[in-house]
């Protein structure tokens, strides 16, 4: 055991794991975090807390993580390298783990031009790969980047993201291999809508043996509407939404589009469960936390296993 987190235990025990996601509010509204957390309690192993996602300023991820801990949920602390240099990253990791946070997800982060402060400077002192390696070094060697000894090292389960749908496709498995070599313990993928392409990606990943070196959780996000599907298809970089998905939602009619979106998500989970190398699913019901249970239950994944 590297961190002894619930997520790690469930994966180690060989169960098909489920993680959720929660976006902190655009303010210090604690009740909002508690409210969203309540919907996810008991239905997932742990919950990703986004770090100023899409470069829009929100309550800090570590603080929202702490609120979740207090509510009895396990958080996955997302950390982007966009806003913090090596000093800030290492310091925040120490602070977060001091508060009891055990899972960390190392990310590049969306460029600030996408967000609500596009005029800002960017940091990117480290890239996500280097941050994964540094997290591992801090945990395993108990040292800072500069090789100085830590007075108390973080015990963390290290995660990272992978987007099988980013270009160039041929490099994606190699980039995942680099993350594994850097020291990631688990991977959560970008939302999967193009299952054929993901299957091809996983085939290459399995050929490289990467699924035996880290746990890979497939990303699933339910479509709430035709508009959302069209928006994601057109405007979200690195997102692959096949026409077939848009058509299914359109054919369902405005009233039933959301139900159809949930149905598609459940079908996706069923397919992921059967796919070699996939160790679980990451259900990102963005601003739709109250519908997460329907999806997870619908996919036959409740109750969640208890591992001590």
């Amino acid at each position: 055991m590297k961190a002894g987190s619930n997520l790690e235990k469930v994966l180690e025990a060989g169960h098909f794991a489920v993680t959720g996601e929660l976006g902190p509010p655009r303010g210090n509204n604690v009740e909002e975090v508690r409210h969203k957390a309540a919907h996810l309690k008991g239905i997932v192993e742990s919950v990703n807390i986004t770090d100023n996602q899409t470069a829009v300023v929100r309550m800090s991820s570590w603080a929202a993580c702490k609120i979740l801990l207090d509510e009895g949920l396990e958080p996955n602390f997302q950390m982007t390298v966009r806003d913090r240099n090596r000093i800030g990253l290492q310091s925040d990791l120490l602070g977060a783990t001091a508060l009891g946070i055990k899972n960390v997800l190392c990310l590049s982060g969306d460029h600030q031009r996408f967000g609500d402060h596009p005029e800002g400077k960017n940091v990117f002192d480290l890239d996500s790969m280097q941050w994964i390696a540094l997290c591992k070094k801090m945990r395993d060697e108990k040292k800072f980047l500069n090789d100085k000894e830590l007075d108390g090292a973080p015990e963390i389960f290290i995660g990272a993201a992978s987007n099988p749908f980013g270009d160039p496709f041929s490099f994606r498995p190699m980039r995942l291999a680099k993350k594994v070599a850097a020291g990631t313990d688990f991977i959560q993928t970008q939302c999967i809508y193009n299952m054929d392409k993901f299957r091809e990606f996983m085939k290459r990943v399995v050929d490289l043996g990467l699924h035996e070196k880290c746990y890979i959780l497939g990303g699933v996000t339910p479509m709430k509407s035709v508009g959302m599907a069209k928006y994601m298809a057109k405007f979200v970089p690195g997102m692959d939404v096949p026409e077939e998905i848009v058509k299914r939602l359109t054919d369902a009619g405005k009233k039933n589009a959301a139900e159809e979106g949930i149905k598609i998500a459940i079908e996706s989970i069923h397919q992921l469960k059967e796919m070699e190398g996939v160790a679980g699913v990451h259900v990102m019901a963005i601003e739709w936390e109250h519908r997460a249970k329907e999806i997870i239950e619908g996919a036959g994944l409740l109750p969640r296993p208890k591992v001590d």
């Binding site: 460029h111 600030q112 031009r113 596009p118 005029e119 800002g120 400077k121 960017n122």
Partner: peptide, 12 residues
């Protein structure tokens, strides 16, 4: 006031 760094390398 806070500078707009979009015209610098920060903006890509």
């Amino acid at each position: 006031p806070v500078k707009n760094w979009l015209t610098s390398r920060d903006g890509g």
